[in-house]
Structure formats: C-alpha cells, structure tokens
C-alpha cells in the first residue's frame, strides 16, 4: 500500500509541475505583449487561453445546444472584449469538468470512495459560478451607467441645436464619456452604420442594459424618426424628465440606506433570541430524542427563511 501512495504522490507532483510551468509561460506572454503594445499595430489582446478556447468552440458551435443557449450571454459582452457569447458557454462547461477532475484526483490521492452525488453537485457549482461572477460585474456596470446618463443627454441637447447629425452627436458622446457607457455607445454607433435608425439602436441598448431612461430616450426619439417632430424640443423634454428622475432617485437612495440598516438588524434578532433560548435550556434540550431535535432545527429554519423572504419582498417593492 505504501508503494501505491508514493506513486500517486509522484503523479500529483508531475501534474502540479506541468500546471505551474504553463502558468509561468502565460504570465511571461502577457508581460511581453504589454511591453510591445505601444509599438504594434495588430491587436495583442488575443492571449494564450483565448486561442485554446477558440479552438474548442469552433468544433461545437454548430451543435443545437450551443445555438439555443448562446443568445443569453449577449448582454455580458462589450465592444472591448475579444470573447464571443459561445466562448462563455465553453468556459462554463469546462470549469465544471475541471472541478470534477480535481475531485477524482483527490479521491485517487487519499483512496476515498467515489460519490456520484458530490460529483454532480461539483459540476453544477462549476457550471453556474461563472454566471454569478458575470452577473455581479454586469449589475455594477449598469449602476455606473445609470448615474452618468445626464451627461449624455446634455451633449445630445447641445449637439442637435447646432445641427449635427446622429453620427456626429454619438461621436461627441464617445469622446466625452467614461468607460462603461463609452463601449456601449460604440455598439450604438456600429448599429447606426449597419442601417438601423437612432430609436431602434437605442432600444437595442435598453434590451442589453435594462435602464429605464434609455427606453424613454428611444421612445421619444422615435417621434422624430416616424412623424418628424423637431428634435430640439424632444431633447429639451428628455433632459427635463431625466434630471427630475435622477433627483428623485438620489432622494430615495438616502431613504433606502436607512432601510438597509434596519434590515440587517432585524435579520439577526430572531437568530439571537432563539439561540439564547436553546442555550439557556441546554441540559433539558439534550434529553430529547434525536428526531425532535431535527424537527425543531428544520422547523425553525423554515420559519426563518419565510421571514427573510417576506422582509426582502417588502424592501424590493416596485416603485
């Protein structure tokens, strides 16, 4: 048995060595690309990991599974990323496989029994963890965009007054505005060059981001596109509307911060009180059967989950 253990350890050592070597090569690659960045014309963003993922996805893209699911990840892309929506799907599939492989390797190392249930759970965790990371990034991005949208409206209002066309106005916006909005308006410019009108391209931006102010912009600019109503009046009305909405939201934010504090306090209180009751009566509690203890903990947990659900649903009421 000892000999097997040494053999497994040697295999593990070789595996880790190969992994460290590839990581080292990747880091060196990035550093060199960064140094050469200012002297090259070609895009140096295509890196080692990306090229490997791209090779794998090209084999599977025509599958039915990919064609159905890849449209879900379109909203996470920006104009700067070299990744495709189908690349994200491959990454999701392979992180799940990687976690299961690590589990198998550990079972080999310590001679544990294989458990299929744990393997399935690990695969699901690997499959959905990228979704969670992407969603948090996305919600952060949307918040930043929502706060800087009045700047866009001011530039639009001044641009249309000196008889600029849509293309020139959006170029002016791209020059002025900072990152998350900048890449979003680059996509709008791309849509315009493909032949869509301004209201449709802004509606596509609303579908990507879900900001209500962008919907207002697209719907009211549609009045100019379809019925020829003067664009200066529309921009004036839009600026007024968005400014008022922003003022209201800042006032609500102050109220919501106090509400958050109340929630965090109220979430602890039931746990604290019930915990105290159990600790005070602990000797009496130990004399019970195991069945009753399980019923008590499960019941309390169920009531607590319902309680938190009610509180959060009150907090997140649509306003």
């Amino acid at each position: 048995m000892e000999e097997y253990k040494i053999m497994f350890q040697i295999i593990a050592f070789v595996f880790i060595f190969i992994l460290v070597y590839y990581l080292y090569r990747y880091i060196i690659y990035i550093f060199r690309a960064h140094r050469l960045k200012s002297y090259t014309i070609k895009n140096t963003k295509k890196n080692y990991v990306y090229s490997n993922i791209d090779k794998i996805t090209k084999k599977f893209v025509n599958l039915n599974f990919y064609q159905k699911r890849k449209n879900r990840y379109d909203k996470y892309l920006t104009s700067n990323t070299v990744y495709n929506s189908s690349h994200i799907l491959t990454l999701k599939l392979f992180t799940g496989v990687l976690l299961v492989l690590v589990y198998l390797f550990e079972c080999m190392l310590y001679k544990l029994n294989l458990n299929l249930f744990i393997a399935i759970i690990l695969y699901l965790v690997g499959y959905y963890i990228i979704d969670i990371i992407l969603y948090f990034e996305y919600s952060n991005k949307v918040l930043k965009m929502d706060n800087n949208l009045t700047k866009v409206m001011i530039i639009m209002n001044n641009g249309y007054r000196v008889n600029k066309n849509h293309r020139e106005v959006i170029d002016a916006i791209i020059e002025e505005v900072r990152e998350p909005l900048k890449s979003e308006f680059k996509i709008v410019r791309n849509d315009l060059s493909k032949g869509l009108d301004i209201s449709n391209s802004l509606f596509r931006m609303y579908e990507r981001t879900g900001i209500e102010k962008v919907l207002y912009m697209s719907e009211l600019l549609g009045l100019n596109v379809k019925y020829g109503i003067s664009i200066i009046d529309i921009c004036d009305a839009l600026e007024k509307m968005i400014c008022k909405k922003e003022k209201r939201e800042f006032y609500l934010l102050r109220l919501k911060n106090t509400n958050k504090l109340v929630i965090s306090l109220l979430a602890i209180i039931p746990l604290f009180v019930v915990g105290l009751l159990i600790i005070m009566n602990y000797d009496y509690f130990l004399m019970l059967e195991l069945n009753k203890i399980i019923i008590i903990t499960l019941g309390e947990l169920f009531i607590y989950i319902v309680y938190m659900f009610v509180i959060l649903s009150v907090f997140r009421r649509e306003l």
């Binding site: 109220l266 209180i269 039931p270 009180v273 009531i303 309680y307 009610v310």
Partner: peptide, 11 residues
C-alpha cells in the same frame, strides 16, 4: 411588525 409576528411564531 413582521419581526414581532415571526418571533412569536418561532418561540
């Protein structure tokens, strides 16, 4: 009000 209701329920 919710906390009072649910706390009494738990106890």
């Amino acid at each position: 009000l919710n906390t009072i209701l649910f706390l009494s329920l738990m106890i």
